[in-house]
Design a protein around this nucleic acid. Structure first.
Length: 227
DNA sequence: TAGGCCATCTGGTCCT
DNA sequence: AGGACCAGATGGCCTA
């Protein structure tokens, strides 16, 4: 996934030119298959989610107790693992009424499913406001790509805002664009803007990543480059 | 076929 | 006790 690793840092900060091209590399191409194929109509095993996606077949088999052949072996393996960890299936668990336990498990599963759907809805909302190619011929951004794109888009906007303020200050005061930091405007949070690449020579990527996240990004190709 | 991405289940942990 | 959150495991789908 080379293109994904190259997302961080400069790639998305060069949004003013070739933004669409940069994001096109992120998108999946033609209409997203899995989402369309899976659909969001069939209720899950919990049966309480009208909008739930079609459940994973193996998961359904396990949830509904329909195992056979290889699936049966896999099911037994998982159960043995859980027993070793003291999870459900162990001696303590055997004391619990299976029906009650099953019902509890299903409700927990449904809740978790709902939570993940909410998370995906939020990601969809984020995708909707990100300026990447929205055409139907371009696949939806992956989750990680969405987050990285959003992060870099925010940084780019902050940089643009900072430069705009510098320009306004220059026009108002007749000072040079390379004004010292003391003339730097305040951020909306009341602190001096500290954009490491808005003035002077750009810093090496690891420095950028460290400046914004505290640590070099594992997903940034520059952070992973050999010196 | 390998790798990427995803949905789901599950058990653990923390919080209310 | 119940819910939210998280991470690991599993397996399906798709693309290069």
């Amino acid at each position: 996934m080379a293109e994904l690793k190259s997302l961080s840092g400069d790639a998305y900060l060069a949004l003013s030119h070739g933004y669409a091209a940069a994001t096109a590399g992120l998108a999946y191409g033609a209409a997203r298959g899995p989402e369309a194929a899976r659909g969001y109509g069939a209720p899950g095993p919990g049966g309480d989610l009208p909008a739930a996606p079609a459940p994973h077949p193996a998961a359904v088999a396990e949830s509904s107790g329909e195992q056979s052949g290889d699936e049966d072996d896999a099911f037994e393996q998982r159960r043995r693992r859980r027993r070793r960890r003291g999870g459900p299936g162990g001696a303590a668990d055997a004391r619990r009424r299976p029906r009650e336990q099953r019902s509890l498990r299903l409700s927990i599963n449904a809740r978790e499913r709902r939570r993940m759907h909410d998370l995906n809805d939020a990601l969809d909302g984020l995708r909707a406001v990100l300026p990447y190619a929205h055409s139907p011929s371009v696949r939806k951004l992956s989750k990680i790509a969405t987050l990285l794109l959003a992060k870099n888009y925010i940084l780019m906007q902050a940089q643009a805002l900072d430069e705009m303020r510098r320009l306004v200050a220059y026009l108002n005061q007749g000072q040079g664009l390379a004004a010292p930091v003391a003339a730097a405007p305040l951020t909306p949070f009341g602190q001096a803007a500290v954009y490491p690449f808005s003035a002077g020579a750009p810093l090496p990527c690891p420095d950028k990543c460290a400046a914004f996240s505290g640590t070099p990004s594992a997903l940034c190709k520059h952070c992973n480059e050999k010196p």
